[in-house]
Design a protein around this nucleic acid. Sequence first.
DNA 1: CTCTCTGCAAAAGGTTTGCACGTCC
DNA 2: GGACGTGCAAACCTTTTGCAGAGAG
Lengths: 138, 138
Amino acid sequence: MHDQTIERGTTWLADAGLRPTRQRVALAALLVGDGMDRHVTAEWLFEAATKAGAGVSLATVYNTLRAFSEAGLVREITVDGSRSYFDTNMTDHPHFYWENDGKLTDAPSEELRIEGLPKAPDGARISAVDVVIRLRRD
Amino acid sequence: MHDQTIERGTTWLADAGLRPTRQRVALAALLVGDGMDRHVTAEWLFEAATKAGAGVSLATVYNTLRAFSEAGLVREITVDGSRSYFDTNMTDHPHFYWENDGKLTDAPSEELRIEGLPKAPDGARISAVDVVIRLRRD
DNA sequence: CTCTCTGCAAAAGGTTTGCACGTCC
DNA sequence: GGACGTGCAAACCTTTTGCAGAGAG
């Protein structure tokens, strides 16, 4: 793994006030090391970390993803009940969900606008608006 | 349970070509018997059925909800990874998800329009567009 | 040195499944 | 009669947790 890759992950952690442990640095590097947006499941990240030789347990991947999520570094996205996806792109943006193979990708739409969004009922505030476009291949 | 309630459920089943077994009729009556839209979890429906004296096992509730879902009678909605909701309103419409208490309701918005929706990539078609407005109470 | 993080294994929670029996047409 | 539906319990899968030891500041 390149130094720059690791450094980017370290900076990312520091910005959120998270202690840069070996495991977190490794996972962060896998997530944002190349500067691209990524949609991962805990299982995928665990396998990637294992392949990369970072000794990280599955429980730690889960704990770490939750920590990242609470620190505002990733956003958790639920599309199919059985698995959670974590997105490194924190902006509100729509997703494609490929029902056939259970993959989640960004929908290429900078122009998507939602008109007539209901306002939050009294005493509540909108914390996010999730838009998932479900795709089916024949 | 009123006759009309049961009849509405029976018709609903017949329209989808599902065999009207005792259990299915009971569950259908609970779901659409009063003609209102409903958002239920398997657990909720199981308890309702039990309270109503319909001897239905939890596994059957799951199997039945899946059958209804595949027959196009209800739509499965996933908002939080741990539970699935089933909505008797099959039209594409936005939902409020109350993060504090894990409830799902219809968002009161007939005017919601999505502008600039990306078209489906080649070889795929859009099967649904899910819009979930997440609400947080203080 | 202290507080937080990690790893393991075990538990939890929701959902599915295998199989024998019952029921609908 | 034959295919399909049901019930139970066990299996399954993802995620969380308890606790002891390791590491960061």
